[in-house]
């Protein structure tokens, strides 16, 4: 059983929902980011989604765009992202790590080589935002061989025919994007999301997590009721942004994650 499968099956047994926390690797700098990732699981994150910094993050809103720039300015690279994962695996062998990003840095590094090294570093899955099923042949084969999950996004614009196509190559869990938009902007209506998820469930048994626009413990609680888990990203990244001015610290981040975990498991 993969780490991802185990997390969802354990949570299901306890009748709990998954908290997926997103931060950008290398933000605000390598060492702090290394500490942050370790702190996330200690504070109650069930799955860690780690952003691979890119110069042109087209699906991201202002918060995560700035996180990408901070990380790149501090010298983040694809290799250093994998180092953060390796360092995390020394202290935590069970919390899944999913890398999220854009295709160009991976393509430039060499897709096969990257998939292999990601697996060796302790990565469990990849979300590559700008590779739709139509273009995924180059990714699919090495990922299947290495046993990494290709986590797919389903959106409010996905029609039934596309859903079938997406489910064909998806594994691990499904990431339901709750709004037509970019990260960290508008929030979705829970009933609309719930009815979409009900439709998706008719076609798959894969766990479904909801992300985009979930910021507060209240948002998290409401949205978790219609899914198997929720993703919080921009709200955490906003806290990390305030590290530089010393307005917030890793302790605040830890409390924030704790509150989110508490809210969805209450």
């Amino acid at each position: 059983m993969s780490r991802i499968e185990k997390v969802f099956s354990d949570l299901k047994e306890q009748n709990k929902k998954a908290l997926v926390t997103f931060v950008t690797a290398g933000d605000p700098d390598h060492q702090t980011s290394d500490d942050i990732v370790k702190q996330l699981s200690k504070s109650g994150a069930d799955i860690i989604e780690l952003g691979m910094p890119f110069s042109d993050p087209m699906a991201d809103g202002p918060s995560i765009q700035r996180a990408n720039i901070r990380a790149l300015n501090a010298g983040a690279t694809l290799i250093k992202t994998l180092q953060i994962v390796k360092s995390f695996r020394v202290i935590d062998a069970s919390t899944p790590i999913v890398l999220m990003g854009y295709f160009n840095p991976i393509h430039h590094y060499g897709t096969e080589r990257f998939v292999l090294e990601a697996k060796e570093s302790g990565v469990d899955g990849l979300i590559i935002v700008d590779v739709p099923p139509e273009e995924d042949s180059e990714l699919n084969e090495p990922m299947r061989k290495s046993g990494l999950d290709l986590i797919r996004l389903v959106t409010p614009t996905t029609d039934p025919a596309r859903l079938d196509l997406i489910l064909n190559s998806a594994s691990g869990f499904l990431y339901y994007v709750s709004i037509a938009g970019v990260t960290g902007t508008k929030s979705a209506d829970v009933q609309t999301v719930g009815s979409h998820i009900t439709q998706i469930r008719q076609k798959t048994d894969m766990p479904i997590v909801v992300g985009f626009g979930i910021k507060t413990p209240d948002d998290a609680k409401t949205m978790s009721e219609v899914a198997d888990g929720i993703v919080v990203g921009s709200a955490l990244v906003d806290t990390i942004e305030k590290f530089e001015s010393a307005e917030k610290s890793i302790t605040d981040l830890s409390e924030q994650v704790n509150a989110l975990a508490g809210a969805i498991q209450a």
């Binding site: 699906a59 590779v131 739709p132 797919r152 996004l153 959106t155 614009t157 029609d159 994007v177 938009g181």
Partner: peptide, 20 residues
Amino acid sequence: ENGHFGIYGGRYVAETLMPL
């Protein structure tokens, strides 16, 4: 039919945009 000129081109966009 998938928009490729040899190995170039294609549709490398997020799922939200694909139907559009």
